[in-house]
Write a protein that binds this DNA or RNA. Structure first.
Length: 889
RNA sequence: AGUCGUUUAGCUCAGUUGGUUAGAGCACCUCCCUUACAAGGAGGGGGCCCACGGUUCGAAUCCGUGAACGACUACCA
């Protein structure tokens, strides 16, 4: 074995091994696991964008999900971890269009069919890339069941879902004000609009009365260019200033049109002048106001946000002007006409499109919508009844708040890449049909001139079906659907809780009659060490692929697990990653040592047979192993990945290496069985987070045939009772060792130097334990000779040690000649006394407090009393030691 | 504006139902190349647990109030 672990040599080998052995297939568990539970455990992988490259967010969910899957699989569940990728309608369409543009091709000119061919070319190139990057993490997802959201069967599921929802009255077509991206020339859902605070202006514009050109109202707006589409000016009905104005006509600037002053109590009297221009075709609030007052809609923009042709008055000259140029021109013109009262600096939130990053325009258009309220209510009620649990819990509130106030979901997009809407329009009667198959004639008028709706569905529509469309739905008799649906856990980032999680729950419940999962686990966002978002422009990206190449997939996996705390962003840094790289190396070297210790006896049966040790340290380690096994199972069940990883880290480093492994050096044959058995069990515990190195080491140790895999060994559950006697005895000796190491170090005694130790007086129990464990005790603290007798006439340094019998302490003596300096020893003792004194004082105070003694539970008081006695004894002995030391000096 | 979250060692963070002289990793200091590992070993220093009130025998932990930071939601033109 090499001196250090080099992941590169091993990662790929074991990934191939798991493939060959078909570890990821749920069927394999049933065949090969020694203790199958007969239960299924299913996680649907959140499908990454087909053109994406692996980033830390992916790495995190892969590490967590595969960890959970490997753990459940080893526990005997038939685990299905189903992988896939998402066609990412907007993102891919944009990339492909941009790519074509760079070749001088306008995608609109080549037509839909040709363009889609181009998109599929991209899928061919990029899908294998993201999949192979995912595989390099060592994930055990079942690639034989891999899905792409545009696969034929998933398309069928989408059609079926759309038609079913239409038939049930959820899906409808309507003309509405929607979020429109002029650059993308498509509608966007509310969720795809990102708001940012921007510094802009508030323009105050005069609107003159038609009947009296001396009177005017001042209207404040952030969008002067939309005044071309104004339908009214609104004031508050109880605003004294404007009572007489209600019902009066105003002359709209630049446009040859009159508008009325209306009253509506949505108006905030305090804001601006208290008069608001109403532009129902270009503002969501105004649209609602317009509906209430039956106002006309005046659309003044083309789909690419230029001023339309055919406006009246001087506005007609603005036709074809971009909305922002129009703003400037209108501002200048208003100024000339003395209609501009002024413009103030103003901060406001502006909506940008997620993909094109252009300013989203509220725009009037015909779109397909999905009614949300009743579906949302049903899921919300389920959540209230505890049928869906969220971890961390904070997300429950956020989820509920959103579910209680859903707006209808605009599901159509004016794009080509995606599932085309299964609606067919009749050219003769202009009505449409929604159905699963292509119709031959119009059901309304019998016309045969039909065409399919050109729009595609929002990507999230197909994603919303992911937990069941991947399993064969709508065929509810499909074997996978019957066996694996509903799934167990949905694990993803909180940024898509509404986009994805909520929609899966609603659509799953409506279409399959069952919630698609009952546990939702939201992982944190990965940030850099200072808490900043990783981005290429900032140059603070820690690329998972680089990391895997440099340090191995296991280092990345355990790091992400260990840093994954609930309810806080994760800060990743090189130094943290190195820490876990070092840890893996530690495991590696521990096994190197173990192998050297058991060379002569490496029969796998012997290794894996649980030992029944008689000695105390071995009983202690076995107890620790069981405790850690129990705790790890418990933590992972609660999604406390960080705590699980921490337990595994410290058990190996502290308990196993720092203590037991060092103890075993004093008698290799005596300790070898426990040494090797515990390591073998430990490798199983660690396997879900560090699959490669543990598999390698397990094979090294057990010398098992290549036909076996650690991935299917039974996960330790820690069933036996803890040996509390061994634990107490071990702690006693370990504390003793530490205090001797301390006095040596404080006095500058070289580690190589052995010193004698005298214990003049000791209670029977402690004495028995020390004698039984003398060999390793003296070895670990560098004592040459331990005698249970006074130190003779020599001057000595005194260590006061807690006895195994609580509340008692005893003295251990080291001839002063062995130590460097009397002064150092005085300093050490003085420090010790200071510590003990303050402890003693606070303890005395606590116990002399009557209300404490009276009101605290008796067992607590008793415990505190024992503590006090122990401190007192120790303090007195230490003081005596200091006194004699001072005499000497 | 509202809702929620965070605030603990120089840095990044743990801390279950209130009973701890408050823990970890990294960084720091001293010593050690002891034959698994220097990606290591032994020891050590370092904290009015954001502030102020309250509940309690007892508060980092529970309850107020406030501050700072962050997230989400929202129709102030």
């Amino acid at each position: 074995m090499d001196k250090a672990y080099t992941a590169l040599q091993h990662d790929l080998k074991w990934q191939k091994h798991w493939d060959k052995y078909n570890v990821a297939a749920p069927e394999t568990v049933a065949q090969k696991h020694s203790k199958p539970t007969g239960k299924t455990f299913t996680i649907m992988m959140p499908p990454p964008n087909v053109t994406g490259a692996l980033h830390q967010g992916h790495a995190l969910f892969l590490a967590l999900q595969d960890g959970l899957c490997r753990w459940r699989r080893m526990c005997g569940d038939e685990v299905l971890y189903l992988p896939g990728s998402d066609h990412a309608s907007i993102a891919v369409q944009m990339l492909v269009a941009r790519d074509l543009e760079s070749k001088g091709i306008n995608y609109k000119e080549i037509g839909r069919e040709k363009f889609l061919e181009e998109c599929w070319q991209w899928v061919k190139v990029y899908q294998p890339r993201i999949f192979s990057q995912m595989k390099s993490m060592g994930v055990t997802c079942d690639w034989s069941r891999v899905k792409f959201t545009l696969d034929d069967d998933l398309n069928d599921a989408v059609t079926h879902a759309f038609v079913t929802l239409f038939e049930r009255g959820y899906i409808y077509r309507a003309q509405r004000l929607v979020n429109w991206s002029p650059k993308g020339q498509t509608v966007l859902s509310d969720l795809e609009v990102l708001f940012e605070e921007r510094q802009t202006h508030l323009w105050n514009i005069r609107y003159y009365r038609s009947d009296d050109s001396t009177k005017y109202l001042v209207v404040s707006t952030t969008r002067p260019e939309t005044l071309l589409g104004d339908s009214a000016v609104a004031v508050h009905p109880e605003d004294e200033r404007y009572k007489d104005w209600i019902g009066k006509k105003l002359k709209l600037p630049l446009v040859d049109r009159e508008i009325e002053v209306i009253a509506d109590d949505f108006v905030d009297r305090e804001f601006g002048s208290g008069a608001v221009k109403i532009t129902p075709a270009h503002d969501f609030t105004d649209f609602e106001v317009g509906k209430r007052h039956n106002l006309q809609l005046h659309n003044v923009f083309t789909p690419d946000a230029k001023i339309v042709e055919g406006l009246s008055g001087e506005a007609s000259s603005l036709a074809g002007l971009d909305r922002f140029d129009a703003r400037k021109k209108i501002e200048a013109r208003l100024e000339e006409l003395k209609l501009l009262e002024g413009k103030e600096n103003y901060k406001t939130r502006i909506g940008f499109s997620e993909r094109w990053n252009d300013v989203v325009e509220p725009y009037l258009s015909n779109q397909w919508f999905c009614k949300m309220d009743s579906m949302a209510k049903a899921v919300s009620d389920d959540a209230k009844e505890g049928k869906i649990t969220f971890t961390p819990q904070e997300f429950y509130n956020q989820f509920q708040r959103w579910m209680e106030d859903t707006k209808d979901w605009c599901v159509s997009r004016q794009l080509w890449w995606g599932q085309q809407i299964p609606a067919y329009h009749c050219k003769s009667c202009e009505r449409f049909m929604v159905q699963r198959t292509v119709p031959e004639k119009c059901e309304h008028c019998g016309g045969v001139d039909l065409f399919q709706d050109p729009d595609v569905l929002d990507t999230w529509f197909s994603s919303g079906l992911w937990p069941f469309s991947t399993l064969g739905w709508p065929n509810e008799e499909a074997p996978d659907f019957k066996k694996f649906y509903p799934t167990q856990i949905l694990e993803t980032g909180f940024d898509i809780i509404f986009f994805w999680v909520a929609r899966m729950l609603m659509m799953g419940r409506e279409l399959t009659g069952k919630l698609p999962f009952d546990r939702v686990y939201m992982h944190p966002m990965v940030r850099d060490e200072h808490g900043h978002k990783m981005s290429k422009t900032k140059g603070n990206v820690i690329d998972p692929i680089d990391l895997i190449e440099k340090m191995g997939a296991d280092t990345l996996r355990i790091t992400l697990n260990a840093l994954c705390v609930q309810g806080r962003d994760m800060r990743l840094s090189e130094s943290k990653i190195e820490g876990y790289r070092n840890f893996i190396n530690k495991v590696w070297n521990a096994v190197r040592f173990v192998l050297s210790a058991v060379e002569s006896n490496s029969d796998p049966k012997w290794i894996q047979q649980r030992p029944q040790p008689g000695d105390m340290p071995s009983k202690w380690l076995m107890s620790r192993l069981d405790a850690v096994s129990r705790d790890v199972n418990k933590r992972w069940d609660e999604f406390k990945m960080q705590e699980g990883a921490e337990l595994l880290y410290h058990f190996l480093w502290d308990d196993y290496c720092a203590w037991y492994l060092e103890i075993s050096k004093t008698d290799k044959s005596k300790y070898s069985h426990v040494l090797v058995y515990v390591m073998s069990e430990y490798l199983k515990l660690l396997h879900p987070v560090c699959p490669h190195v543990t598999e390698e080491l397990w094979h090294e140790m057990n010398g098992v045939s290549s036909e076996q895999t650690l991935a299917l060994e039974a996960f330790p559950q820690g069933d036996s009772f803890p040996d509390s006697t061994a634990i107490a005895e071990f702690d006693f000796v370990a504390e003793f060792v530490k205090s001797i190491r301390n006095i040596r170090s404080e006095n500058g005694v070289k580690p190589s130097k052995k010193i004698p130790l005298y214990i003049p007086k000791l209670d029977e129990k402690s004495s028995k334990i020390l004698k039984e464990n003398k060999d390793w005790f003296v070895s670990l603290c560098g004592v040459s000779d331990l005698s249970f007798s006074p130190a003779g006439t020599e001057a000595v340094a005194t260590i006061v040690v807690n006895s195994i019998t609580t509340s008692e302490s005893f003295e251990a003596l080291i001839p002063l000649s062995e130590l460097v300096d009397v002064k150092e020893e005085i300093t050490r003792l003085t420090k010790e006394i200071e510590k003990l004194s303050s402890y003693f004082d606070s303890q005395t105070k606590k116990l002399s407090n009557k209300s404490f003694v009276d009101k605290a539970p008796p067992e607590v008081v008793e415990k505190e009393k024992l503590k006090l006695e122990e401190i007192q004894g120790k303090l007195e002995k230490t003081k005596a030691a200091l006194l004699s030391m001072e005499k000497m000096a």
